[in-house]
């Protein structure tokens, strides 16, 4: 439940219970724990840093409004993913977003400007780095050109590493549907990435 938060002693469940009992001040702690995950999901889905920022904030606003009704039937992370994915889907399906979207990127802004990213440990030589950047660019383009419903599955599975069962829960699909759609998405990706990898 507390992925990437090994040092904290208070669990998400405790924070949520305190929130439900009226202590709304614990919510920034919940944001802090999950904002990277939500922000990156939104960024990969939307392909635009500002849109991702807006979408991630909106996701947390919805979480704040709905947290009192959270019944712990699914994990809190799955619940957050579901809200974020639905938020992204709504935005992606809006004609305004479609009209304004010039190019889809997974970790760059629409105008190609480099986004603030975490420093990696890429100590390879420049040629190798350039080759890897080219590969990543090809993958971004290929994933970005997938239909929205398939892109959501690829992001959740390949980028976020979510299990099939979780993806089925998040997207409210049958497990078989998730697998068949992912197979279709990967077939499209294979065709798009021929020669690039």
């Amino acid at each position: 439940m507390n992925r990437g938060n090994k040092n904290v002693t208070v669990t998400d469940e405790e924070l949520i219970r305190r929130f439900q009992e009226g202590d709304k001040d614990v919510f920034p702690m919940l944001i802090k724990r999950h904002m990277n995950m939500v922000f990156n999901l939104c960024n990969r889905m939307m392909g635009d840093y500002d849109e991702a920022n807006d979408c991630a904030q909106e996701t947390f606003v919805k979480i704040y409004r709905g947290l009192d009704l959270f019944k712990f039937r699914s994990s809190f992370t799955t619940w957050i993913y579901r809200i974020a994915v639905n938020n992204c889907k709504n935005r992606l399906s809006s004609s305004h977003y479609r009209f304004s979207r010039r190019a889809v990127s997974l970790d760059t802004s629409a105008d190609g400007e480099r986004l603030p990213v975490q420093a990696g440990d890429d100590r390879s030589n420049p040629e190798t780095r350039w080759e890897r950047d080219e590969q990543m660019s090809a993958i971004r383009t290929a994933v970005g050109s997938l239909p929205d419903d398939l892109r959501i599955l690829v992001v959740l599975r390949d980028f976020e590493g979510r299990p099939y069962e979780d993806i089925a829960d998040i997207c409210r699909m049958k497990l078989g549907t998730v697998k068949s759609k992912l197979a279709r998405a990967r077939h499209i990706l294979r065709e798009s990435l021929k020669g690039a990898l």
Partner: peptide, 18 residues
């Protein structure tokens, strides 16, 4: 493909996100 994804950098939310 998976190696490239693993190498892909995580976007950092704005400092005043919270």
């Amino acid at each position: 493909y998976y190696a490239a994804i693993r190498r892909s950098r995580q976007a950092i939310p704005p400092a005043d996100f919270i």
